[in-house]
Design a protein around this nucleic acid. Structure first.
Lengths: 196, 196
DNA sequence: CGTTGAAATTGACACTGTGTAAAGTTGACA
DNA sequence: TGTCAACTTTACACAGTGTCAATTTCAACG
Protein backbone atom coordinates (compact mmCIF):
# COMPACT_ATOMS: atom_id res chain seq x y z
CA UNK A 1 0.00 0.00 0.00
CA UNK A 2 2.42 2.68 1.18
CA UNK A 3 5.60 3.40 -0.66
CA UNK A 4 8.11 1.45 1.42
CA UNK A 5 5.14 -0.13 3.20
CA UNK A 6 6.04 0.57 6.83
CA UNK A 7 7.54 -2.82 7.57
CA UNK A 8 8.13 -5.76 5.33
CA UNK A 9 5.11 -8.01 4.81
CA UNK A 10 7.26 -11.01 5.66
CA UNK A 11 8.13 -9.46 8.99
CA UNK A 12 4.52 -8.55 9.64
CA UNK A 13 3.56 -12.17 8.97
CA UNK A 14 6.17 -13.41 11.42
CA UNK A 15 5.15 -10.94 14.11
CA UNK A 16 1.49 -11.74 13.64
CA UNK A 17 2.10 -15.49 13.74
CA UNK A 18 4.06 -15.02 16.93
CA UNK A 19 1.27 -12.99 18.50
CA UNK A 20 -1.41 -15.46 17.53
CA UNK A 21 0.57 -18.39 18.90
CA UNK A 22 1.40 -16.58 22.12
CA UNK A 23 -1.96 -15.26 23.04
CA UNK A 24 -4.18 -18.19 22.43
CA UNK A 25 -5.21 -21.73 22.94
CA UNK A 26 -6.89 -21.75 19.53
CA UNK A 27 -5.65 -23.64 16.51
CA UNK A 28 -3.95 -20.89 14.45
CA UNK A 29 -4.61 -21.99 10.89
CA UNK A 30 -3.05 -20.42 7.84
CA UNK A 31 -6.32 -18.57 7.26
CA UNK A 32 -6.24 -17.19 10.81
CA UNK A 33 -2.77 -15.80 10.25
CA UNK A 34 -3.71 -14.33 6.88
CA UNK A 35 -6.77 -12.64 8.30
CA UNK A 36 -4.79 -11.19 11.18
CA UNK A 37 -2.08 -9.88 8.87
CA UNK A 38 -4.70 -8.48 6.54
CA UNK A 39 -3.77 -10.40 3.42
CA UNK A 40 -5.25 -13.36 1.63
CA UNK A 41 -4.46 -16.88 2.69
CA UNK A 42 -2.78 -17.50 -0.64
CA UNK A 43 -0.46 -14.54 -0.17
CA UNK A 44 1.07 -16.37 2.78
CA UNK A 45 2.28 -19.01 0.35
CA UNK A 46 4.05 -16.28 -1.64
CA UNK A 47 6.28 -15.77 1.39
CA UNK A 48 6.48 -19.21 2.97
CA UNK A 49 6.19 -22.54 1.15
CA UNK A 50 4.12 -24.19 3.88
CA UNK A 51 2.93 -23.96 7.44
CA UNK A 52 5.89 -25.81 8.93
CA UNK A 53 8.41 -23.45 7.37
CA UNK A 54 6.41 -20.45 8.48
CA UNK A 55 6.50 -21.73 12.04
CA UNK A 56 10.19 -22.47 11.88
CA UNK A 57 10.88 -19.03 10.42
CA UNK A 58 8.86 -17.60 13.30
CA UNK A 59 11.10 -19.30 15.87
CA UNK A 60 14.16 -17.88 14.14
CA UNK A 61 12.50 -14.49 14.10
CA UNK A 62 11.80 -14.67 17.82
CA UNK A 63 15.36 -15.76 18.47
CA UNK A 64 16.61 -12.72 16.57
CA UNK A 65 14.24 -10.26 18.23
CA UNK A 66 14.81 -11.60 21.72
CA UNK A 67 18.49 -12.12 21.18
CA UNK A 68 18.71 -15.59 22.67
CA UNK A 69 22.26 -16.20 21.65
CA UNK A 70 23.45 -13.19 23.61
CA UNK A 71 21.38 -14.20 26.61
CA UNK A 72 22.73 -17.73 26.68
CA UNK A 73 26.28 -16.59 25.94
CA UNK A 74 26.14 -14.56 29.12
CA UNK A 75 25.89 -17.72 31.20
CA UNK A 76 29.16 -18.85 29.67
CA UNK A 77 31.03 -16.06 31.38
CA UNK A 78 30.14 -17.11 34.91
CA UNK A 79 33.09 -18.13 37.03
CA UNK A 80 32.16 -21.32 38.87
CA UNK A 81 30.12 -24.22 37.56
CA UNK A 82 27.36 -23.47 40.03
CA UNK A 83 27.12 -19.84 39.03
CA UNK A 84 27.04 -20.99 35.46
CA UNK A 85 24.17 -23.32 36.25
CA UNK A 86 22.26 -20.49 37.88
CA UNK A 87 22.90 -18.15 34.97
CA UNK A 88 21.83 -20.78 32.47
CA UNK A 89 18.63 -21.65 34.30
CA UNK A 90 17.75 -17.98 34.45
CA UNK A 91 18.65 -17.23 30.83
CA UNK A 92 16.94 -20.21 29.28
CA UNK A 93 14.08 -20.35 31.77
CA UNK A 94 13.40 -16.69 31.12
CA UNK A 95 13.30 -17.31 27.39
CA UNK A 96 10.77 -20.13 27.50
CA UNK A 97 7.71 -17.87 27.94
CA UNK A 98 8.60 -16.20 24.65
CA UNK A 99 8.74 -19.41 22.65
CA UNK A 100 6.06 -21.31 24.46
CA UNK A 101 3.33 -20.68 21.89
CA UNK A 102 5.40 -21.70 18.93
CA UNK A 103 6.67 -24.69 20.85
CA UNK A 104 3.15 -26.00 21.28
CA UNK A 105 2.38 -25.50 17.59
CA UNK A 106 5.53 -27.18 16.34
CA UNK A 107 5.19 -30.10 18.71
CA UNK A 108 1.58 -30.60 17.62
CA UNK A 109 2.84 -31.07 14.06
CA UNK A 110 5.43 -33.66 15.12
CA UNK A 111 3.42 -36.69 14.06
CA UNK A 112 2.29 -35.38 10.72
CA UNK A 113 5.25 -33.29 9.64
CA UNK A 114 8.79 -34.58 9.75
CA UNK A 115 10.21 -31.18 8.85
CA UNK A 116 8.53 -29.49 11.79
CA UNK A 117 9.72 -32.22 14.13
CA UNK A 118 13.30 -31.92 12.92
CA UNK A 119 13.25 -28.14 13.18
CA UNK A 120 12.09 -28.29 16.77
CA UNK A 121 14.55 -31.04 17.66
CA UNK A 122 17.30 -28.91 16.19
CA UNK A 123 16.38 -25.96 18.41
CA UNK A 124 16.31 -28.22 21.44
CA UNK A 125 19.69 -29.65 20.55
CA UNK A 126 21.10 -26.15 20.87
CA UNK A 127 19.71 -25.99 24.39
CA UNK A 128 21.28 -29.36 25.07
CA UNK A 129 24.67 -28.00 24.09
CA UNK A 130 24.16 -25.30 26.69
CA UNK A 131 23.34 -27.94 29.30
CA UNK A 132 26.41 -29.90 28.29
CA UNK A 133 28.65 -26.88 28.81
CA UNK A 134 27.14 -26.22 32.21
CA UNK A 135 27.66 -29.83 33.30
CA UNK A 136 31.24 -29.75 32.10
CA UNK A 137 31.89 -26.62 34.13
CA UNK A 138 30.36 -28.20 37.23
CA UNK A 139 32.41 -31.33 36.73
CA UNK A 140 35.58 -29.28 36.24
CA UNK A 141 34.96 -27.74 39.63
CA UNK A 142 34.57 -31.20 41.12
CA UNK A 143 31.00 -30.44 42.14
CA UNK A 144 29.18 -33.02 40.06
CA UNK A 145 27.52 -35.79 42.06
CA UNK A 146 29.84 -38.76 41.88
CA UNK A 147 27.16 -41.20 40.72
CA UNK A 148 26.44 -39.10 37.65
CA UNK A 149 28.31 -39.50 34.39
CA UNK A 150 28.60 -36.19 32.52
CA UNK A 151 26.38 -37.45 29.75
CA UNK A 152 23.74 -38.63 32.21
CA UNK A 153 23.89 -35.33 34.03
CA UNK A 154 23.43 -33.49 30.75
CA UNK A 155 20.40 -35.63 29.87
CA UNK A 156 18.94 -34.91 33.27
CA UNK A 157 19.51 -31.16 33.20
CA UNK A 158 18.16 -30.96 29.66
CA UNK A 159 15.06 -32.82 30.74
CA UNK A 160 14.49 -30.73 33.85
CA UNK A 161 14.69 -27.56 31.79
CA UNK A 162 12.35 -28.74 29.04
CA UNK A 163 9.63 -26.49 27.73
CA UNK A 164 7.15 -29.19 28.68
CA UNK A 165 8.13 -28.94 32.33
CA UNK A 166 7.83 -25.17 32.21
CA UNK A 167 4.37 -25.54 30.72
CA UNK A 168 3.26 -27.91 33.39
CA UNK A 169 4.52 -25.82 36.28
CA UNK A 170 3.76 -22.32 35.05
CA UNK A 171 0.74 -22.82 32.84
CA UNK A 172 -0.93 -25.87 34.37
CA UNK A 173 0.04 -25.48 38.03
CA UNK A 174 -0.10 -21.69 37.99
CA UNK A 175 3.42 -21.00 39.21
CA UNK A 176 4.82 -17.53 38.65
CA UNK A 177 7.84 -17.22 36.41
CA UNK A 178 9.90 -16.24 39.43
CA UNK A 179 8.77 -19.32 41.37
CA UNK A 180 9.61 -21.48 38.38
CA UNK A 181 13.10 -20.05 38.10
CA UNK A 182 13.82 -20.34 41.79
CA UNK A 183 12.55 -23.89 42.15
CA UNK A 184 14.33 -24.95 39.00
CA UNK A 185 17.54 -23.48 40.30
CA UNK A 186 17.14 -25.42 43.53
CA UNK A 187 16.00 -28.61 41.85
CA UNK A 188 18.76 -28.70 39.27
CA UNK A 189 21.25 -28.01 42.05
CA UNK A 190 19.83 -30.81 44.15
CA UNK A 191 19.85 -33.18 41.21
CA UNK A 192 23.34 -32.47 39.92
CA UNK A 193 25.55 -31.22 42.71
CA UNK A 194 27.40 -33.33 45.24
CA UNK A 195 26.15 -32.45 48.71
CA UNK A 196 29.82 -32.16 49.88
CA UNK B 1 -17.91 -65.33 12.11
CA UNK B 2 -17.57 -67.99 14.80
CA UNK B 3 -20.32 -68.66 17.23
CA UNK B 4 -19.15 -66.67 20.24
CA UNK B 5 -16.54 -65.07 17.96
CA UNK B 6 -13.36 -65.89 19.86
CA UNK B 7 -13.12 -62.53 21.56
CA UNK B 8 -15.38 -59.55 21.34
CA UNK B 9 -14.80 -57.31 18.33
CA UNK B 10 -14.70 -54.32 20.62
CA UNK B 11 -11.88 -55.92 22.59
CA UNK B 12 -10.06 -56.85 19.41
CA UNK B 13 -10.29 -53.23 18.26
CA UNK B 14 -8.87 -52.02 21.56
CA UNK B 15 -6.04 -54.53 21.54
CA UNK B 16 -5.18 -53.72 17.95
CA UNK B 17 -5.25 -49.98 18.56
CA UNK B 18 -2.95 -50.48 21.50
CA UNK B 19 -0.54 -52.55 19.41
CA UNK B 20 -0.49 -50.06 16.58
CA UNK B 21 0.14 -47.15 18.92
CA UNK B 22 2.86 -48.99 20.80
CA UNK B 23 4.88 -50.35 17.96
CA UNK B 24 5.09 -47.38 15.71
CA UNK B 25 5.98 -43.86 14.93
CA UNK B 26 3.36 -43.80 12.16
CA UNK B 27 0.14 -41.89 12.27
CA UNK B 28 -2.44 -44.61 13.14
CA UNK B 29 -5.52 -43.47 11.28
CA UNK B 30 -8.95 -44.99 11.67
CA UNK B 31 -8.40 -46.86 8.41
CA UNK B 32 -5.11 -48.29 9.72
CA UNK B 33 -6.86 -49.64 12.79
CA UNK B 34 -9.72 -51.07 10.74
CA UNK B 35 -7.36 -52.81 8.35
CA UNK B 36 -5.34 -54.27 11.22
CA UNK B 37 -8.46 -55.54 12.96
CA UNK B 38 -9.78 -56.94 9.70
CA UNK B 39 -13.00 -54.97 9.51
CA UNK B 40 -14.14 -52.00 7.47
CA UNK B 41 -13.37 -48.48 8.58
CA UNK B 42 -17.07 -47.79 9.00
CA UNK B 43 -17.46 -50.75 11.33
CA UNK B 44 -15.21 -48.95 13.81
CA UNK B 45 -17.88 -46.29 14.11
CA UNK B 46 -20.37 -48.97 15.09
CA UNK B 47 -18.30 -49.49 18.23
CA UNK B 48 -16.83 -46.08 18.97
CA UNK B 49 -18.38 -42.74 18.06
CA UNK B 50 -15.08 -41.14 17.06
CA UNK B 51 -11.33 -41.44 17.18
CA UNK B 52 -10.92 -39.58 20.46
CA UNK B 53 -13.29 -41.92 22.30
CA UNK B 54 -11.61 -44.93 20.79
CA UNK B 55 -8.26 -43.72 22.11
CA UNK B 56 -9.68 -42.96 25.52
CA UNK B 57 -11.35 -46.37 25.66
CA UNK B 58 -7.97 -47.84 24.77
CA UNK B 59 -6.30 -46.17 27.75
CA UNK B 60 -9.00 -47.56 30.01
CA UNK B 61 -8.51 -50.95 28.43
CA UNK B 62 -4.77 -50.82 29.06
CA UNK B 63 -5.38 -49.73 32.63
CA UNK B 64 -7.62 -52.74 33.12
CA UNK B 65 -5.28 -55.23 31.47
CA UNK B 66 -2.19 -53.93 33.23
CA UNK B 67 -3.98 -53.43 36.47
CA UNK B 68 -2.66 -49.95 37.24
CA UNK B 69 -4.88 -49.36 40.19
CA UNK B 70 -3.48 -52.38 41.97
CA UNK B 71 0.06 -51.37 41.11
CA UNK B 72 -0.36 -47.86 42.40
CA UNK B 73 -2.33 -49.00 45.43
CA UNK B 74 0.67 -51.03 46.45
CA UNK B 75 2.71 -47.88 46.96
CA UNK B 76 0.11 -46.78 49.46
CA UNK B 77 1.01 -49.60 51.81
CA UNK B 78 4.63 -48.55 52.26
CA UNK B 79 5.55 -47.55 55.76
CA UNK B 80 7.62 -44.38 55.59
CA UNK B 81 7.13 -41.46 53.22
CA UNK B 82 10.42 -42.20 51.53
CA UNK B 83 9.56 -45.83 50.92
CA UNK B 84 6.26 -44.66 49.58
CA UNK B 85 8.04 -42.34 47.20
CA UNK B 86 10.24 -45.17 45.99
CA UNK B 87 7.29 -47.48 45.52
CA UNK B 88 5.36 -44.84 43.64
CA UNK B 89 8.22 -43.97 41.33
CA UNK B 90 8.66 -47.62 40.54
CA UNK B 91 4.96 -48.37 40.07
CA UNK B 92 4.14 -45.37 37.93
CA UNK B 93 7.49 -45.25 36.16
CA UNK B 94 7.13 -48.89 35.28
CA UNK B 95 3.68 -48.25 33.85
CA UNK B 96 4.70 -45.44 31.55
CA UNK B 97 6.18 -47.68 28.83
CA UNK B 98 2.79 -49.35 28.49
CA UNK B 99 0.89 -46.14 27.91
CA UNK B 100 3.55 -44.25 26.05
CA UNK B 101 2.09 -44.88 22.59
CA UNK B 102 -1.39 -43.80 23.49
CA UNK B 103 -0.03 -40.84 25.34
CA UNK B 104 1.64 -39.54 22.20
CA UNK B 105 -1.54 -40.01 20.17
CA UNK B 106 -3.80 -38.30 22.68
CA UNK B 107 -1.44 -35.41 23.20
CA UNK B 108 -1.16 -34.92 19.45
CA UNK B 109 -4.93 -34.40 19.38
CA UNK B 110 -4.82 -31.81 22.17
CA UNK B 111 -5.07 -28.78 19.93
CA UNK B 112 -7.79 -30.06 17.65
CA UNK B 113 -9.88 -32.12 20.02
CA UNK B 114 -11.05 -30.82 23.38
CA UNK B 115 -12.42 -34.22 24.36
CA UNK B 116 -9.09 -35.92 23.84
CA UNK B 117 -7.30 -33.23 25.81
CA UNK B 118 -9.73 -33.51 28.70
CA UNK B 119 -9.50 -37.27 28.73
CA UNK B 120 -5.73 -37.18 28.94
CA UNK B 121 -5.76 -34.46 31.57
CA UNK B 122 -8.14 -36.56 33.59
CA UNK B 123 -5.79 -39.54 33.51
CA UNK B 124 -2.91 -37.32 34.57
CA UNK B 125 -4.95 -35.89 37.39
CA UNK B 126 -5.18 -39.39 38.80
CA UNK B 127 -1.40 -39.57 38.78
CA UNK B 128 -1.32 -36.22 40.50
CA UNK B 129 -3.45 -37.58 43.31
CA UNK B 130 -0.87 -40.29 43.75
CA UNK B 131 1.87 -37.66 43.95
CA UNK B 132 -0.17 -35.72 46.45
CA UNK B 133 -0.51 -38.75 48.71
CA UNK B 134 3.22 -39.41 48.53
CA UNK B 135 4.06 -35.82 49.42
CA UNK B 136 1.65 -35.91 52.33
CA UNK B 137 3.29 -39.05 53.65
CA UNK B 138 6.73 -37.48 53.36
CA UNK B 139 5.53 -34.35 55.10
CA UNK B 140 3.93 -36.41 57.86
CA UNK B 141 7.32 -37.98 58.52
CA UNK B 142 8.84 -34.50 58.69
CA UNK B 143 11.09 -35.27 55.74
CA UNK B 144 9.83 -32.67 53.30
CA UNK B 145 12.31 -29.91 52.48
CA UNK B 146 11.32 -26.95 54.60
CA UNK B 147 11.22 -24.49 51.69
CA UNK B 148 8.59 -26.58 49.92
CA UNK B 149 4.88 -26.16 50.48
CA UNK B 150 3.01 -29.45 50.06
CA UNK B 151 1.24 -28.16 47.00
CA UNK B 152 4.48 -27.00 45.43
CA UNK B 153 6.13 -30.31 46.19
CA UNK B 154 3.22 -32.12 44.58
CA UNK B 155 3.50 -29.98 41.46
CA UNK B 156 7.20 -30.72 41.30
CA UNK B 157 6.92 -34.47 41.80
CA UNK B 158 4.11 -34.64 39.26
CA UNK B 159 6.25 -32.77 36.76
CA UNK B 160 9.33 -34.87 37.35
CA UNK B 161 7.33 -38.06 36.79
CA UNK B 162 5.62 -36.85 33.62
CA UNK B 163 5.35 -39.08 30.58
CA UNK B 164 7.16 -36.36 28.63
CA UNK B 165 10.22 -36.64 30.88
CA UNK B 166 10.18 -40.41 30.53
CA UNK B 167 10.04 -40.03 26.76
CA UNK B 168 12.95 -37.66 26.70
CA UNK B 169 15.18 -39.78 28.91
CA UNK B 170 14.28 -43.27 27.74
CA UNK B 171 13.33 -42.73 24.12
CA UNK B 172 15.38 -39.69 23.14
CA UNK B 173 18.44 -40.10 25.37
CA UNK B 174 18.42 -43.88 25.21
CA UNK B 175 18.28 -44.61 28.91
CA UNK B 176 17.26 -48.07 30.01
CA UNK B 177 14.07 -48.38 32.00
CA UNK B 178 16.15 -49.39 35.00
CA UNK B 179 18.37 -46.30 34.68
CA UNK B 180 15.28 -44.14 34.39
CA UNK B 181 13.76 -45.58 37.53
CA UNK B 182 16.93 -45.32 39.53
CA UNK B 183 17.74 -41.76 38.50
CA UNK B 184 14.16 -40.69 39.02
CA UNK B 185 14.22 -42.18 42.48
CA UNK B 186 17.39 -40.27 43.28
CA UNK B 187 16.23 -37.05 41.64
CA UNK B 188 12.84 -36.96 43.27
CA UNK B 189 14.53 -37.68 46.58
CA UNK B 190 17.01 -34.88 46.05
CA UNK B 191 14.27 -32.47 45.02
CA UNK B 192 11.80 -33.20 47.80
CA UNK B 193 13.59 -34.48 50.85
CA UNK B 194 15.29 -32.40 53.48
CA UNK B 195 18.97 -33.29 53.57
CA UNK B 196 18.80 -33.62 57.40
C1' DC C 1 -37.51 -74.24 7.31
C1' DG C 2 -38.07 -69.50 7.29
C1' DT C 3 -37.68 -65.25 9.61
C1' DT C 4 -35.62 -61.99 12.45
C1' DG C 5 -31.95 -59.09 14.19
C1' DA C 6 -27.35 -57.81 15.04
C1' DA C 7 -22.94 -57.07 12.95
C1' DA C 8 -20.74 -55.85 9.14
C1' DT C 9 -20.14 -54.31 4.30
C1' DT C 10 -20.19 -51.13 0.31
C1' DG C 11 -20.32 -46.83 -1.68
C1' DA C 12 -21.32 -42.11 -1.57
C1' DC C 13 -20.83 -37.79 0.44
C1' DA C 14 -20.05 -33.49 3.60
C1' DC C 15 -16.57 -31.00 6.00
C1' DT C 16 -12.05 -29.05 7.32
C1' DG C 17 -7.56 -27.61 6.50
C1' DT C 18 -3.40 -27.69 3.55
C1' DG C 19 -1.36 -26.83 -0.58
C1' DT C 20 -1.46 -25.86 -5.91
C1' DA C 21 -2.72 -23.36 -10.00
C1' DA C 22 -4.17 -19.75 -13.01
C1' DA C 23 -5.98 -15.44 -14.34
C1' DG C 24 -6.83 -10.78 -12.99
C1' DT C 25 -5.90 -6.25 -10.21
C1' DT C 26 -3.15 -2.58 -8.34
C1' DG C 27 0.29 0.75 -7.90
C1' DA C 28 5.07 2.29 -7.95
C1' DC C 29 8.50 3.62 -10.91
C1' DA C 30 11.42 4.07 -15.08
C1' DT D 1 3.10 4.04 -21.26
C1' DG D 2 4.50 -0.18 -20.04
C1' DT D 3 6.47 -3.33 -16.84
C1' DC D 4 7.20 -5.76 -12.58
C1' DA D 5 6.15 -7.35 -8.11
C1' DA D 6 2.88 -7.97 -4.66
C1' DC D 7 -1.45 -9.28 -3.95
C1' DT D 8 -6.31 -10.86 -5.00
C1' DT D 9 -10.00 -14.04 -6.39
C1' DT D 10 -11.59 -18.30 -7.68
C1' DA D 11 -11.13 -23.01 -8.25
C1' DC D 12 -9.56 -27.38 -7.31
C1' DA D 13 -6.84 -31.72 -5.55
C1' DC D 14 -5.96 -34.34 -1.49
C1' DA D 15 -6.16 -36.52 3.06
C1' DG D 16 -8.59 -37.83 7.00
C1' DT D 17 -12.76 -37.73 9.89
C1' DG D 18 -17.34 -38.55 10.41
C1' DT D 19 -22.31 -39.46 8.44
C1' DC D 20 -25.82 -41.89 5.87
C1' DA D 21 -28.40 -45.38 3.55
C1' DA D 22 -28.92 -49.60 1.23
C1' DT D 23 -27.45 -54.17 1.38
C1' DT D 24 -25.34 -58.74 2.84
C1' DT D 25 -24.31 -62.39 6.10
C1' DC D 26 -25.19 -65.53 9.51
C1' DA D 27 -26.40 -67.30 13.91
C1' DA D 28 -30.35 -68.06 16.61
C1' DC D 29 -35.12 -68.82 17.43
C1' DG D 30 -39.81 -70.55 16.78
Amino acid sequence: MMSSDQIDTKTRILDTTWNLLESGDKAVRMSDIAKAVGISRQALYLHFPNRAELLVATTRHIDAVKNVDARLAQSRSAASGIERLHAFVQAWGGYIPDIHGISVALRAMRESDKAAAMAWDDRMLAVRHGCEAVVRAIAANGDLRSELAEQTATDLLWTLLSVENWERLVRDCGWSQAAYEQTMRETTEAALLASH
